[in-house]
């Protein structure tokens, strides 16, 4: 294809997106659109899968059967979300195994928040409330993104996600209405998860390299800073109801802007964790790689069984 023809196709493509038409897998698309989507969607899928680990840590130690079934269901949902997203990404021409390889080799990233440890039961509450809360804010606009399979997967994800946040908040509420020690535990979890949750919404707009292009493709409908502000505005009153304190001395309501002003985010910490130096990066990846490698014989056995069954059918037919 000549350069001029590609340029022409690109113009038709951009106009299609501007008209809010969806792009489907077999439609022509610029290489950069394909690559950007593979990167973002697989990263999103990896985050769901790695996101199971910090919470899985507490399934056997959940304080009641009610909490245990809820946590199990939540972790199972996350596996499901990972699977919706992996298969949506595959429509762009990358295989599942390639994506796993990119994750395991460190080439592909996942949300850096999952590199923090879950050391008390209150962390499970804080994750549901804050991490899933931030995820919902990130994900709701994606239900309208331009790539059809991604948008459809996100509709399913968002439908299921609100139970996650409510179960987390209920855990926090129960702790905050409990003994002084339990309330302290909730406060401690908020102290540790607050700032990483703010970072989860991504670098500030002036430091975000992908924002402009992503807005154009409707991969993003609001900037990171807008999403962060929205998260803070809706979460602070929820902390007030719990009766615990957001660990930010500069946090205060601004009558003029109608938003909360907040303190400085430690972006050095964020980049350290992204680069692999968070408290649990190595442990998380090791767990993933082990699960994949130790499961190889199961996958092989299932495939061998399927082949044998297929052979049998052929022989019977003859």
């Amino acid at each position: 294809m000549s350069e001029k023809e590609v340029k022409n196709l690109e113009e038709i493509f951009e106009a299609k997106i501007a008209r809010d038409e969806k792009i489907e897998p077999k439609d022509w698309m610029p290489e950069k659109y394909r690559k950007t989507h593979i990167r973002q969607m697989s990263q999103h899928a990896h985050s769901e899968i790695v996101g199971m680990l910090p919470e899985g840590n507490w399934i056997t130690r959940a304080p009641s059967l009610r909490r245990k079934v809820a946590l199990l269901a939540k972790v199972q949902d996350e596996a499901g979300h990972g699977l919706y997203l992996y298969s949506a990404t595959e429509t762009l021409g990358i295989s599942r195994d390639e994506m796993f390889e990119q994750l395991h080799s460190g080439k592909a990233k996942y949300s850096s928040i999952f590199n923090y440890p879950t050391i008390t039961w209150a962390d499970i509450g804080a994750i549901g409330w804050l991490v899933d809360g931030a995820a919902i804010i990130n994900q709701v606009p994606l239900c309208n993104t331009s790539f059809g399979p991604y948008a459809r997967a996100m509709v399913r994800v968002c439908k299921e996600e609100s139970f996650h946040q409510r179960q987390g908040y209920e855990i926090m509420l129960t702790l905050c209405n409990g003994t002084e020690e339990q309330k302290q535990m909730a406060q401690d979890a908020l102290n540790r998860w607050w700032w990483p949750s703010l970072m989860m919404l991504g670098p500030t707009d002036d430091a975000s390299t992908h924002t402009e292009q992503s807005m154009k493709w409707k991969l993003k409908r609001k900037t990171n800073d807008e999403l962060r502000q929205q998260f803070i505005d809706q979460t602070v009153p929820q902390a007030d109801i719990l009766g615990i304190t957001v660990p930010d001395e500069d946090l205060k309501w601004n009558e003029e802007t109608g938003h909360y002003d907040f303190g400085k985010i430690d972006w050095d910490e964020f980049w350290q964790v992204v680069k692999g130096h968070g408290p649990c990066n190595k442990e998380r990846m090791q767990t993933r790689v082990n699960a994949w490698e130790n499961g190889q014989w199961v996958r092989d056995a299932a495939m061998a069984h399927a082949d044998k069954q297929a052979d049998k059918k052929v022989k019977q037919a003859v």
Partner: peptide, 23 residues
């Protein structure tokens, strides 16, 4: 509804139940 990987159709059906019809 979407897609998934499975060794055979039997397993695909079981996995589809777990992945796409949990509710």
């Amino acid at each position: 509804f979407g897609s998934l990987h499975a060794a055979d159709a039997e397993m695909a059906l079981e996995n589809a139940r777990d992945v796409y019809t949990r509710r």
